[in-house]
Protein backbone atom coordinates (compact mmCIF):
# COMPACT_ATOMS: atom_id res chain seq x y z
CA UNK A 1 0.00 0.00 0.00
CA UNK A 2 1.25 3.43 -0.92
CA UNK A 3 1.69 6.02 1.82
CA UNK A 4 1.90 9.80 1.65
CA UNK A 5 2.29 12.59 4.14
CA UNK A 6 -0.06 15.52 4.65
CA UNK A 7 1.38 18.19 6.91
CA UNK A 8 -1.07 19.29 9.57
CA UNK A 9 -1.32 22.79 8.18
CA UNK A 10 -2.32 21.27 4.86
CA UNK A 11 -5.15 19.23 6.29
CA UNK A 12 -7.64 22.09 6.56
CA UNK A 13 -7.23 23.11 2.91
CA UNK A 14 -7.70 19.48 1.88
CA UNK A 15 -10.97 19.18 3.80
CA UNK A 16 -12.14 22.58 2.59
CA UNK A 17 -11.45 21.57 -0.98
CA UNK A 18 -13.47 18.43 -0.52
CA UNK A 19 -16.34 20.38 1.01
CA UNK A 20 -16.33 22.99 -1.71
CA UNK A 21 -15.54 20.94 -4.74
CA UNK A 22 -16.43 17.37 -4.33
CA UNK A 23 -19.40 16.19 -2.31
CA UNK A 24 -21.13 16.36 1.00
CA UNK A 25 -18.48 15.69 3.64
CA UNK A 26 -19.51 13.97 6.86
CA UNK A 27 -17.16 14.01 9.81
CA UNK A 28 -17.00 13.76 13.60
CA UNK A 29 -17.92 16.98 15.38
CA UNK A 30 -18.29 17.91 19.04
CA UNK A 31 -21.70 17.48 20.57
CA UNK A 32 -22.45 18.24 24.23
CA UNK A 33 -19.11 16.91 25.40
CA UNK A 34 -19.29 13.88 23.07
CA UNK A 35 -18.86 13.44 19.34
CA UNK A 36 -21.27 12.85 16.51
CA UNK A 37 -20.95 12.41 12.76
CA UNK A 38 -22.56 15.30 10.95
CA UNK A 39 -22.31 17.26 7.75
CA UNK A 40 -19.23 19.49 7.80
CA UNK A 41 -19.80 23.11 6.88
CA UNK A 42 -16.20 24.09 7.48
CA UNK A 43 -13.00 22.29 8.45
CA UNK A 44 -12.86 23.82 11.90
CA UNK A 45 -15.72 21.61 13.06
CA UNK A 46 -13.85 18.41 12.30
CA UNK A 47 -12.40 16.59 15.34
CA UNK A 48 -10.04 13.90 14.18
CA UNK A 49 -8.86 13.01 17.69
CA UNK A 50 -12.30 11.90 18.93
CA UNK A 51 -12.77 8.74 21.03
CA UNK A 52 -15.99 7.49 19.50
CA UNK A 53 -19.22 8.94 18.15
CA UNK A 54 -22.71 8.62 19.60
CA UNK A 55 -24.08 6.94 16.48
CA UNK A 56 -21.99 4.97 14.00
CA UNK A 57 -21.33 6.23 10.46
CA UNK A 58 -23.43 3.37 9.10
CA UNK A 59 -26.35 5.79 9.41
CA UNK A 60 -25.24 7.39 6.15
CA UNK A 61 -25.33 4.10 4.27
CA UNK A 62 -28.28 2.52 6.08
CA UNK A 63 -30.27 5.50 7.36
CA UNK A 64 -32.39 5.19 10.52
CA UNK A 65 -35.44 5.73 8.34
CA UNK A 66 -35.52 5.22 4.59
CA UNK A 67 -38.16 5.00 1.88
CA UNK A 68 -38.19 1.71 -0.06
CA UNK A 69 -41.10 2.20 -2.41
CA UNK A 70 -43.65 4.86 -3.26
CA UNK A 71 -47.20 4.04 -4.22
CA UNK A 72 -50.43 5.60 -5.29
CA UNK A 73 -53.68 3.96 -4.36
CA UNK A 74 -56.55 3.53 -6.75
CA UNK A 75 -58.22 1.01 -8.97
CA UNK A 76 -54.88 0.55 -10.71
CA UNK A 77 -52.33 1.27 -7.98
CA UNK A 78 -48.95 2.57 -9.03
CA UNK A 79 -45.75 1.46 -7.34
CA UNK A 80 -42.18 2.50 -7.89
CA UNK A 81 -38.94 1.68 -6.14
CA UNK A 82 -37.01 4.40 -4.33
CA UNK A 83 -33.27 4.19 -3.72
CA UNK A 84 -31.84 7.58 -3.02
CA UNK A 85 -28.10 8.03 -3.11
CA UNK A 86 -25.79 10.98 -3.46
CA UNK A 87 -22.01 11.25 -3.46
CA UNK A 88 -20.74 11.33 0.09
CA UNK A 89 -17.37 11.50 1.79
CA UNK A 90 -17.23 9.92 5.22
CA UNK A 91 -14.24 11.65 6.74
CA UNK A 92 -12.54 10.42 9.89
CA UNK A 93 -14.00 6.95 10.25
CA UNK A 94 -12.29 4.75 12.83
CA UNK A 95 -10.98 1.30 11.86
CA UNK A 96 -13.63 -0.55 13.91
CA UNK A 97 -16.39 1.32 12.08
CA UNK A 98 -14.70 0.48 8.78
CA UNK A 99 -14.75 -3.20 9.76
CA UNK A 100 -18.41 -2.84 10.65
CA UNK A 101 -19.16 -1.35 7.24
CA UNK A 102 -17.37 -4.31 5.67
CA UNK A 103 -19.84 -6.56 7.47
CA UNK A 104 -22.80 -4.50 6.25
CA UNK A 105 -21.41 -4.73 2.72
CA UNK A 106 -21.57 -8.49 2.94
CA UNK A 107 -24.95 -8.64 4.69
CA UNK A 108 -26.62 -6.33 2.19
CA UNK A 109 -25.08 -7.85 -0.92
CA UNK A 110 -25.35 -11.56 -0.15
CA UNK A 111 -28.25 -13.57 -1.63
CA UNK A 112 -30.67 -10.72 -2.31
CA UNK A 113 -28.63 -7.58 -3.02
CA UNK A 114 -30.23 -4.55 -1.40
CA UNK A 115 -30.30 -1.65 -3.82
CA UNK A 116 -30.98 0.92 -1.12
CA UNK A 117 -27.79 0.14 0.75
CA UNK A 118 -25.58 -0.69 -2.21
CA UNK A 119 -26.36 2.41 -4.22
CA UNK A 120 -25.41 4.58 -1.24
CA UNK A 121 -22.34 2.50 -0.59
CA UNK A 122 -21.18 2.82 -4.17
CA UNK A 123 -21.27 6.60 -3.95
CA UNK A 124 -19.51 6.81 -0.59
CA UNK A 125 -15.83 7.53 -0.12
CA UNK A 126 -14.38 6.41 3.19
CA UNK A 127 -11.50 8.34 4.64
CA UNK A 128 -10.45 6.64 7.82
CA UNK A 129 -8.41 7.86 10.73
CA UNK A 130 -6.63 5.68 13.24
CA UNK A 131 -8.16 5.73 16.70
CA UNK A 132 -5.37 6.86 19.04
CA UNK A 133 -7.65 7.90 21.87
CA UNK A 134 -10.01 4.94 22.44
CA UNK A 135 -13.14 5.23 24.54
CA UNK A 136 -12.93 3.49 27.92
CA UNK A 137 -15.39 0.71 26.97
CA UNK A 138 -13.70 -0.25 23.70
CA UNK A 139 -11.88 -3.56 23.25
CA UNK A 140 -10.85 -3.40 19.60
CA UNK A 141 -7.36 -4.91 19.97
CA UNK A 142 -8.88 -8.15 21.27
CA UNK A 143 -10.91 -8.44 18.09
CA UNK A 144 -8.28 -7.25 15.64
CA UNK A 145 -10.30 -4.14 14.80
CA UNK A 146 -7.98 -1.49 16.22
CA UNK A 147 -6.50 -0.97 12.78
CA UNK A 148 -7.78 -1.73 9.29
CA UNK A 149 -5.91 -2.87 6.19
CA UNK A 150 -8.91 -2.77 3.86
CA UNK A 151 -12.29 -1.11 3.58
CA UNK A 152 -11.15 2.49 3.12
CA UNK A 153 -10.18 4.79 0.30
CA UNK A 154 -7.71 6.69 2.45
CA UNK A 155 -6.52 6.09 6.01
CA UNK A 156 -4.96 8.82 8.12
CA UNK A 157 -2.71 8.43 11.14
CA UNK A 158 -1.76 11.38 13.32
CA UNK A 159 2.01 11.27 13.88
CA UNK A 160 2.41 14.64 15.54
CA UNK A 161 3.08 17.38 13.02
CA UNK A 162 1.61 15.52 10.12
CA UNK A 163 -0.67 12.70 9.03
CA UNK A 164 0.50 9.56 7.28
CA UNK A 165 -2.06 8.76 4.58
CA UNK A 166 -2.38 5.19 3.41
CA UNK A 167 -3.97 4.94 -0.01
CA UNK A 168 -6.60 2.20 -0.16
CA UNK A 169 -8.12 2.77 -3.58
CA UNK A 170 -7.67 4.64 -6.83
CA UNK A 171 -10.64 6.79 -5.87
CA UNK A 172 -8.77 7.81 -2.74
CA UNK A 173 -5.60 8.44 -4.66
CA UNK A 174 -7.41 10.71 -7.12
CA UNK A 175 -8.89 12.80 -4.32
CA UNK A 176 -5.47 13.18 -2.82
CA UNK A 177 -3.83 14.18 -6.08
CA UNK A 178 -6.58 16.61 -6.89
CA UNK A 179 -7.16 18.30 -3.55
CA UNK A 180 -4.25 17.79 -1.14
CA UNK A 181 -0.70 18.86 -0.88
CA UNK A 182 1.24 15.71 -0.11
CA UNK A 183 4.73 14.33 -0.20
CA UNK A 184 6.25 10.88 -0.01
CA UNK A 185 6.40 9.32 3.45
CA UNK A 186 9.84 8.54 4.82
CA UNK A 187 10.76 5.28 6.54
CA UNK A 188 11.04 7.20 9.79
CA UNK A 189 7.51 8.52 9.42
CA UNK A 190 6.12 5.05 8.75
CA UNK A 191 7.96 3.81 11.82
CA UNK A 192 6.42 6.68 13.72
CA UNK A 193 2.97 5.54 12.58
CA UNK A 194 3.63 2.09 13.93
CA UNK A 195 4.77 3.45 17.20
CA UNK A 196 1.64 5.67 17.51
CA UNK A 197 -0.52 2.64 16.84
CA UNK A 198 1.41 0.63 19.40
CA UNK A 199 1.03 3.34 22.01
CA UNK A 200 -2.70 3.50 21.33
CA UNK A 201 -3.06 -0.23 22.00
CA UNK A 202 -1.90 0.37 25.54
CA UNK A 203 -4.70 2.90 26.07
CA UNK A 204 -7.52 0.36 25.79
CA UNK A 205 -9.01 -0.46 29.18
CA UNK A 206 -11.06 -3.55 28.31
CA UNK A 207 -9.59 -6.82 27.08
CA UNK A 208 -11.18 -10.09 26.03
CA UNK A 209 -9.71 -13.15 27.70
CA UNK A 210 -10.66 -15.23 24.66
CA UNK A 211 -9.76 -15.02 21.01
CA UNK A 212 -12.56 -14.12 18.59
CA UNK A 213 -12.16 -17.43 16.73
CA UNK A 214 -13.09 -19.30 19.88
CA UNK A 215 -16.27 -17.32 20.51
CA UNK A 216 -18.70 -19.39 18.43
CA UNK A 217 -17.62 -22.52 20.21
CA UNK A 218 -17.74 -20.90 23.64
CA UNK A 219 -21.24 -19.61 23.03
CA UNK A 220 -22.21 -22.97 21.58
CA UNK A 221 -21.88 -24.49 25.01
CA UNK A 222 -23.11 -21.56 27.11
CA UNK A 223 -26.81 -21.62 26.26
CA UNK A 224 -27.85 -22.87 29.67
CA UNK A 225 -25.61 -20.58 31.70
CA UNK A 226 -27.34 -18.82 34.62
CA UNK A 227 -25.64 -15.63 33.38
CA UNK A 228 -28.36 -14.82 30.87
CA UNK A 229 -31.14 -14.63 33.40
CA UNK A 230 -29.08 -13.06 36.12
CA UNK A 231 -27.63 -10.31 33.98
CA UNK A 232 -30.72 -9.54 31.91
CA UNK A 233 -32.86 -8.91 35.01
CA UNK A 234 -31.93 -5.23 34.79
CA UNK A 235 -32.50 -4.86 31.06
CA UNK A 236 -34.84 -1.99 30.24
CA UNK A 237 -35.49 -3.32 26.73
CA UNK A 238 -34.65 0.23 25.74
CA UNK A 239 -32.79 -0.71 22.58
CA UNK A 240 -29.97 1.76 23.19
CA UNK A 241 -27.39 -0.98 22.65
CA UNK A 242 -28.68 -1.96 19.22
CA UNK A 243 -29.33 1.58 18.02
CA UNK A 244 -25.75 2.71 18.68
CA UNK A 245 -24.18 -0.47 17.32
CA UNK A 246 -22.26 -0.18 14.04
CA UNK A 247 -22.85 -3.83 13.12
CA UNK A 248 -26.61 -4.07 13.76
CA UNK A 249 -28.64 -4.06 10.57
CA UNK A 250 -32.13 -5.24 11.47
CA UNK A 251 -35.12 -3.18 10.47
CA UNK A 252 -38.88 -2.85 10.59
CA UNK A 253 -41.02 -1.98 7.58
CA UNK A 254 -44.15 0.15 7.66
CA UNK A 255 -46.48 1.99 5.31
CA UNK A 256 -47.29 5.66 5.59
CA UNK A 257 -49.90 7.55 3.67
CA UNK A 258 -50.37 11.23 2.83
CA UNK A 259 -53.30 13.27 4.08
CA UNK A 260 -55.00 12.85 0.72
CA UNK A 261 -55.16 9.15 1.62
CA UNK A 262 -53.94 8.39 -1.87
CA UNK A 263 -50.18 8.66 -2.12
CA UNK A 264 -47.91 6.91 0.25
CA UNK A 265 -44.62 5.25 0.87
CA UNK A 266 -43.24 2.12 2.44
CA UNK A 267 -40.23 2.80 4.62
CA UNK A 268 -37.85 0.84 6.76
CA UNK A 269 -36.49 1.94 10.08
CA UNK A 270 -33.92 0.54 12.46
CA UNK A 271 -35.25 -2.16 14.71
CA UNK A 272 -33.54 -4.74 16.82
CA UNK A 273 -33.69 -7.91 18.80
CA UNK A 274 -33.50 -6.19 22.21
CA UNK A 275 -36.89 -4.54 21.75
CA UNK A 276 -39.75 -6.46 23.33
CA UNK A 277 -41.88 -6.92 20.20
CA UNK A 278 -39.12 -7.78 17.73
CA UNK A 279 -40.21 -11.43 17.47
CA UNK A 280 -43.89 -10.90 18.36
CA UNK A 281 -46.55 -12.21 15.98
CA UNK A 282 -50.22 -11.37 15.59
CA UNK A 283 -52.26 -12.49 18.57
CA UNK A 284 -50.42 -13.15 21.79
CA UNK A 285 -47.35 -14.97 20.47
CA UNK A 286 -43.82 -13.73 21.02
CA UNK A 287 -40.91 -15.99 20.16
CA UNK A 288 -38.51 -14.05 22.40
CA UNK A 289 -40.93 -12.64 24.91
CA UNK A 290 -38.58 -12.44 27.90
CA UNK A 291 -35.56 -10.28 28.58
CA UNK A 292 -33.34 -13.30 29.08
CA UNK A 293 -33.84 -14.75 25.62
CA UNK A 294 -33.44 -11.36 23.96
CA UNK A 295 -30.27 -10.60 25.88
CA UNK A 296 -28.85 -13.99 24.98
CA UNK A 297 -29.86 -13.68 21.35
CA UNK A 298 -28.00 -10.40 20.94
CA UNK A 299 -24.81 -11.85 22.44
CA UNK A 300 -25.10 -14.91 20.20
CA UNK A 301 -25.48 -12.67 17.19
CA UNK A 302 -22.39 -10.74 18.16
CA UNK A 303 -20.20 -13.75 18.89
CA UNK A 304 -21.58 -16.65 16.87
CA UNK A 305 -24.49 -16.32 14.45
CA UNK A 306 -23.11 -13.46 12.35
CA UNK A 307 -19.75 -15.16 12.15
CA UNK A 308 -21.34 -18.41 11.02
CA UNK A 309 -23.47 -16.66 8.42
CA UNK A 310 -21.11 -14.06 6.97
CA UNK A 311 -17.64 -15.03 8.21
CA UNK A 312 -17.28 -11.60 9.72
CA UNK A 313 -17.31 -10.55 13.34
CA UNK A 314 -20.70 -9.45 14.61
CA UNK A 315 -19.03 -7.11 17.08
CA UNK A 316 -16.12 -4.81 16.38
CA UNK A 317 -15.51 -3.86 20.01
CA UNK A 318 -16.32 -0.15 19.73
CA UNK A 319 -17.82 -0.10 23.23
CA UNK A 320 -20.71 2.17 22.24
CA UNK A 321 -23.30 -0.26 23.63
CA UNK A 322 -21.58 -0.40 26.99
CA UNK A 323 -21.45 3.39 27.15
CA UNK A 324 -25.11 3.68 26.20
CA UNK A 325 -26.54 1.03 28.50
CA UNK A 326 -27.90 2.59 31.69
CA UNK A 327 -28.34 -0.84 33.23
CA UNK A 328 -24.64 -1.51 32.63
CA UNK A 329 -25.15 -4.93 31.10
CA UNK A 330 -24.72 -4.48 27.35
CA UNK A 331 -21.00 -4.97 26.87
CA UNK A 332 -20.25 -8.14 24.89
CA UNK A 333 -16.75 -8.12 26.43
CA UNK A 334 -18.14 -8.56 29.92
CA UNK A 335 -20.40 -11.42 28.84
CA UNK A 336 -17.77 -13.21 26.77
CA UNK A 337 -15.20 -12.95 29.55
CA UNK A 338 -17.68 -14.20 32.11
CA UNK A 339 -18.67 -17.18 29.98
CA UNK A 340 -15.06 -18.01 29.36
CA UNK A 341 -14.45 -18.00 33.09
CA UNK A 342 -17.50 -20.21 33.69
CA UNK A 343 -16.33 -22.68 31.09
CA UNK A 344 -13.00 -23.25 32.78
Amino acid sequence: MENKIIEKQNMAPFVDNLINAEAEVIGPKRKDGKYAFDKLIETGELCLDYDTTLLPPKMYLFPPKETLIKFELGKEPKVEPVAEAKPLILFGVHPYDIKAIELLDVAFSTTNPDINYLSKREKAVIIGVDCLNPNPNAFCPSLGTATAETGFDLMLTDIGDSYVVAIGSSKGEQLLTKYAETREASQAELAQRNSERQKALARYKVTLNISPEELPQLLGKSWDSPWWKEKSEKCLSCGSCIVVCPTCFCFDVQDDIALNLKEGERYRQWDGCMLADFAAVAGEGNFRGDKESRFRHRMYRKGKYIWERYEKLGCVGCGRCASACLAEIASPAETFNKLKEESK
Binding site: P113, L118, S119, R121, E122
Partner: peptide, 13 residues
Protein backbone atom coordinates in the same frame (compact mmCIF):
# COMPACT_ATOMS: atom_id res chain seq x y z
CA UNK B 1 -15.31 -3.60 -0.21
CA UNK B 2 -18.47 -4.09 -2.16
CA UNK B 3 -18.61 -7.68 -3.21
CA UNK B 4 -21.44 -7.13 -5.62
CA UNK B 5 -22.48 -4.29 -7.89
CA UNK B 6 -25.62 -2.27 -7.35
CA UNK B 7 -28.49 -4.49 -8.48
CA UNK B 8 -30.78 -3.28 -11.28
CA UNK B 9 -34.00 -3.72 -9.31
CA UNK B 10 -35.27 -3.30 -5.80
CA UNK B 11 -35.97 -6.45 -3.88
CA UNK B 12 -38.68 -4.53 -2.05
CA UNK B 13 -40.72 -3.70 -5.14
Amino acid sequence: MISQAVPPTSIYL
